[in-house]
């Protein structure tokens, strides 16, 4: 039975290879497909970001954030790092966003709340400045062109990632862990409630 299936699959694979050779002039090339995918992910990123910022309702804003995260995951996929892309989905969409949702649900959520008011001009301009701030770092890179800066890292396998985190990137790994630990300790301190007392 399995041999028969195997034969069928192999002949199908041959058939498709022939079909592909015949269709080759009509199909988008690898490069074009990559550009199309890039454009799609950029659209997801920008559209999701705009929804997240402009939505008048926190749940819809979080949905925009999720779309942005999906776009980021797609970018990782395009950079040939499927493991990072899946981790992005697992952690950001599956855990972080769900926790944000949870926090929203625990609060009283009305569509005419504080977040629904039109912000003042000074706030808007400050927000615009903050949004442009990363350009200070990224701008020169864009100007120079980044192709000379990219060094090929070893393939994105889990083993390579693990070895990298515990050898070359050990310091940054530990620093990030400390930041997370401090954040967690701070959250526990803020929420801690002695018996009979009130939260600080």
């Amino acid at each position: 039975m399995n041999d028969i299936l195997n034969n069928i699959f192999h002949s199908l694979a041959r058939l498709f290879a022939d079909l592909e050779a015949w269709l080759a002039p009509f199909l988008p090339s690898q490069d074009l497909a990559a550009y199309l995918a890039f454009a799609f992910y950029v659209l997801l990123l920008l559209g999701g970001g705009l929804v997240a910022v402009l939505a008048r309702n926190l749940v819809r804003a979080t949905l925009g954030l999720i779309i942005t995260f999906l776009g980021v995951a797609g970018m990782y996929l395009l950079l040939a790092s499927p493991f990072l892309a899946l981790m992005q989905l697992l952690i950001y969409v599956g855990a972080v966003c769900v926790l944000i949702f949870f926090a929203i649900m625990l609060t009283k959520n009305t569509s005419d709340g504080e977040e629904a008011r039109c912000p003042r001009l000074s706030n808007l301009s400050l927000a615009g400045l903050a949004g442009l701030a990363p350009l200070v770092v990224i701008g020169p890179l864009i100007y120079q062109g980044t192709s000379s800066l990219v060094t090929r890292r070893p393939a994105d396998t889990v083993a390579n990632l693990g070895e990298g985190l515990l050898s070359i990137d050990l310091l940054s790994f530990e620093l990030i862990s400390i930041i997370l630990l401090v954040a967690m300790a701070g959250a526990v301190y803020l929420a801690f409630r002695p018996h009979g007392g009130r939260a600080r």
Binding site: V59, L63, I66, P82, F83, L86, M87, L89, L90, V93, G94, A95, C97, V98, F101, F102, M105, T157, V158
Partner: peptide, 26 residues
Amino acid sequence: NVNEGIILILAFAGLGVLSNLLAGWS
């Protein structure tokens, strides 16, 4: 055939919770 098959399953399984949440909230 993906090398990180189980991660793929776990990652997209997270979207299921999201749908429950959206259904309940909306």
